[in-house]
Amino acid sequence: MRLIGAAWIMGGDFSIMDYFIWNEIPTALGNLVGGLAFTGLTRYSTHYKTAPKRKLAASGKQAIA
């Protein structure tokens, strides 16, 4: 964020839309995909089979750990 302001002060020729299209959107999508793939899927694959099984209560509405 500091580099964008510094670039504008130094005469950079780009707009706010250029900033969002070429910086913010790819960064947000990369963080989303990377977070899901490297954190979410890794955690799921390592803990799925080792998690304790849940049993439903008699009413069928509450799960007991």
Rank of each mutant, 00 (worst) to 15 (best):
M1G: 14
M1L: 12
R2Y: 09
R2A: 08
R2N: 10
L3N: 13
L3H: 12
L3I: 11
I4G: 15
G5L: 12
G5R: 04
G5T: 03
A6E: 12
A6F: 11
A7T: 06
W8Y: 05
W8G: 06
W8K: 09
W8P: 06
I9D: 08
I9N: 08
I9S: 09
M10I: 04
G11M: 01
G12L: 05
G12C: 02
D13N: 10
F14A: 12
S15A: 03
I16R: 15
M17Q: 15
M17K: 14
D18G: 06
D18M: 11
F20R: 07
I21N: 07
I21F: 05
W22N: 12
N23S: 15
N23V: 14
N23M: 11
I25Q: 03
I25R: 04
I25K: 03
P26A: 01
P26K: 01
T27P: 00
T27I: 01
T27Y: 01
A28M: 02
G30L: 00
G30A: 05
N31H: 00
N31G: 04
L32V: 01
L32I: 00
V33E: 00
G34V: 02
G35P: 03
L36V: 08
L36A: 04
A37M: 11
A37T: 02
F38D: 09
T39D: 14
G40P: 03
G40E: 08
G40R: 05
L41A: 05
L41S: 05
R43S: 08
R43W: 10
S45A: 12
T46G: 10
T46C: 06
Y48E: 07
Y48N: 05
T50A: 15
P52K: 06
K53H: 13
K53C: 09
R54C: 12
R54H: 11
K55F: 14
K55W: 11
K55L: 14
A57Y: 08
A58C: 02
S59K: 06
S59T: 09
S59L: 08
G60M: 02
G60D: 00
G60Q: 01
G60Y: 00
G60F: 00
K61H: 09
K61P: 04
K61T: 12
K61G: 11
Q62T: 08
A63V: 14
A63G: 15
I64L: 12
A65G: 08
